[in-house]
Design a protein around this nucleic acid. Structure first.
Length: 412
RNA sequence: GCCGCUUUCGUCUAGUGGCCUAGGACGUCACGUUCUCAACGUGAAGAUCACCGGUUCGAAUCCGGUAAGCGGUACCA
């Protein structure tokens, strides 16, 4: 039975890099019909950030990466102490300055075959130093709690960021000291930013929750993340979660650090937005995304029509408001005198349209276009406040003559 | 410094000795469509496969070295 874990420490809000580890663990578990375990590694009291633990749950819940079991290390202090005492008794650990330290072997080497890249990694023991197991505040270190828990929780595959490669020899020596089975290690290359530095808050790495707030769809984010350092072995790039589960394999994970490219994420988000049925997109705009307030008073049928016009023009859900804001608010658009003239003519022309259909509206606006030798973008600006946007004849037909006239009367 | 990992178009990647005059995707550019912008369609530019040397009839692919980037070197994780 495959058992893997995602073990974040609540020292900050997880970003794309951490979250992608969770995804890979989840996919591997599901692919093998195994268990996905969540373990909060809160042993660093100095760096503890209270709001990060709920954020971890929010992220996993939003992405629907459901965990099968959950543990919190700070609730397991006696367990670590017990095992530390055992090592002291056996002579492989000792006390120093109020801490418990592990005695690393001085001869030979420590090696393992990493599942990522299927390569042997080897460290000479002579370069290894004794390390702390239990800090003087009574809390275990990562290196210790990690091994104890992975063993007790019967973790079969340790899939984590490759910043832990250097500490893996420590872990292996601990397993050996206890006489425990050593799990398979799979070290994921970390995602880096466009500056090729590891993703971090200081470098402007956003959390998954920020992407949600910015109008990205969870499907797009997952699909984008999975392609960072993994490929399904075919040219296709758009995959749903069950296809990922089916295809996922540790051997297809790359060994080099991928650079996070927001442009591709944007493209992918657009793909997923266009893939959504209109009513689903509409409900995401009002529920999944914080648009309720603005959309509350809009007629449902009207809204659906607007959404369907906006669908191919959106990169993120936020774009909907950019595109349709002029309908919901009564924008005060600054126009120069020439534009004001044209606004007047538009009002006149459109008021006299008898059949309020897009063909008639188009005909009517085109007249003004030719007469004044202006571009269509000028008319877009007068009506919507932006030089580009939803196709005017259609959207004007949808919102109705009355509303259109009202918009133009702003300039009187 | 020492230890370890990495190195194919700007970016994500395919590629495991001949199918590679290196394939796909994003981005960029052009054209088509067109009431704007998108979407969509077609096409183009873009990588001497980090570098040097070796093995081989033949190397992005195997071997050795060098360089650069990154990670670790914490009573952080």
């Amino acid at each position: 039975m495959v058992r893997v874990r995602f073990a974040p420490s609540p020292t900050g809000i997880p970003h794309i890099g951490n979250t992608r580890s969770a995804l890979f663990n989840y996919l591997f578990a599901k692919h093998n019909n195994g268990k996905f375990i969540l373990r909060i590694e809160d042993t660093d009291r100095a760096r503890f950030v209270p709001e990060s633990e709920p954020a971890i749950y929010d992220i996993l819940n939003w992405l629907e990466l459901k965990w099968d079991e959950k543990y919190v290390q700070s609730e397991r202090l006696e367990i670590y102490k017990k095992f530390a005492d055992q090592l002291i008794e056996e002579g492989t650990a000792y006390k120093e300055d109020g801490a418990v330290k592990f005695k690393m072997p001085e001869l030979g080497k420590t090696d393992w075959t990493d599942a990522v890249g299927n390569k042997k990694i080897e460290f000479k023991n002579e370069f290894q130093e004794d390390f702390v197991l239990i800090k003087s505040d009574g809390y275990p270190t990562y290196n210790f709690a990690n091994v104890i828990d992975d063993h007790l929780m019967e973790i079969t595959h340790v899939i984590r960021g490759d910043e832990f490669i250097s500490s893996t020899p420590k872990h292996i020596q601990l397993y050996k000291a206890f006489g425990w089975d050593i799990p398979v290690f799979a070290h994921l290359p970390v995602i880096v930013g466009s500056d090729h530095q590891k993703l971090s808050k200081r470098h402007g790495a956003k959390s998954v929750l920020d992407y949600k707030k910015d109008g990205y769809l969870k499907e797009a984010l997952i699909n984008f993340m999975v392609l960072l350092g993994w490929n399904p072995g075919e040219d296709r790039e758009i995959l749903n979660i069950s296809e990922m589960i089916k295809l996922f394999d540790l051997k297809d994970i790359n060994t080099a650090s991928p650079v996070f490219d927001n442009k591709k994420l944007e493209w992918m988000n657009g793909i997923y937005i266009r893939q959504l049925p209109v009513d689903e997109l509409k409900s995401r705009l009002s529920h999944d995304f914080g648009g309720q307030a603005k959309l509350k008073n809009i007629d449902d049928v009207l809204l659906e029509k607007i959404v369907s016009l906006a669908q191919t023009r959106m990169t993120t859900l936020n774009d909907f408001y950019l595109l349709s804001g002029f309908i919901f608010e009564n924008p005060k658009i600054a126009l120069n005198s020439k534009e004001k003239e044209i606004a007047k003519e538009l009002l006149q022309n459109l008021s006299s349209v008898s059949k309020w259909k897009q063909e008639e509206i188009l005909k009517s606006t085109k007249e003004i276009l030719f007469k004044n030798k202006i571009k269509m973008s000028a008319i877009y600006k007068i009506i919507t406040g932006r030089e580009t946007g939803l196709p005017l004849p259609q959207i004007l037909e949808i919102i109705g003559k009355e509303k259109t006239v009202k918009l133009l009367e702003n300039y009187k």
